[in-house]
């Protein structure tokens, strides 16, 4: 092999790929990283249903894209209430807020907390969760969730209000656990009183009878 040939050949490779590279870099594109800032107030009742008020604030570009994709709030509402959702929503009210590039929503999340017998369990979903404060049955958390397959993220401040009598509240991973024993309702004290009166009556009625026997 003549060395000069190989030498020229390698230069030519360089030539072609410099051309390609310069063109390719001219064609370089940027994938936009989407960010949504959210606030959520979630009040959980004694049946495990969560009553939620939520606001999502978008970047202007993403807000426009969202509005293009869902021109009416009806479409957006259907998107959230979609049957493919892992959550069962009820009474959803949702509205665009064009002046602030945000969406406001109010809804009930049925079965948000599940009674596991000894305790209740509330799964706050994927993402990183940090507890900011806890005051009695109220917790403030920050949730960071990836969106669009990692192309964006949602940072949300969650205020979680658990039932008034919830006790021993703890967070394990993204799951909130608390104790709230279920009491069968309707132990009517009238019947207890009636039973006591019956016992007393029986005692009074039968005591002289015994004495008579003696």
């Amino acid at each position: 092999m003549n060395m000069r040939r190989a030498f020229i050949l390698s230069s030519l490779f360089l030539f072609v790929f410099l051309i390609l590279l310069s063109t390719a870099l001219a064609a370089d594109i940027k994938l936009e990283e989407y960010k949504i800032d959210g606030t959520m107030k979630m009040q959980v009742d004694t049946t495990g249903t969560a009553h939620v008020e939520e606001t999502w604030k978008f970047t202007p570009n993403l807000y426009l894209q969202m509005k293009q994709a869902y021109p009416t709030t009806y479409m957006l509402k259907r998107e959230f209430e979609n049957k493919r959702s892992s959550v069962e929503y009820k009474d959803m009210k949702i509205e665009w807020d064009d002046s602030n590039n945000q969406i406001k929503a109010q809804y009930e999340m049925l079965g948000a907390a599940v009674n596991k017998g000894e305790y209740w369990e509330l799964d706050l979903g994927e993402g990183d969760l940090t507890v900011s404060t806890q005051n009695g049955n109220t917790l403030v958390l920050t949730s960071v969730q990836p969106l669009f397959g990692g192309q964006g993220r949602m940072v949300e401040t969650v205020t979680l209000v658990l039932p008034k009598n919830a006790k021993n509240i703890r967070i394990e991973g993204n799951i909130v656990r608390y104790e709230l024993p279920y009491k069968e309702s309707g132990k009517n004290p009238v019947f207890l009183g009636l039973a006591l009166i019956s016992v007393l009556g029986l005692v009074l009625l039968n005591a002289p009878l015994k004495r008579g026997k003696k």
């Binding site: 309702s185 309707g186 019947f191 009636l194 009625l205």
Partner: peptide
């Protein structure tokens, strides 16, 4: 007295059942 006792026993059983039953 016997009749009264029977009535009271009946009342006692009824009250206990009603108290125990989830109303």
């Amino acid at each position: 007295k016997i009749v009264g006792s029977i009535v009271l026993v009946g009342l006692l059983l009824f009250s206990m059942f009603m108290y125990a039953k989830p109303s």
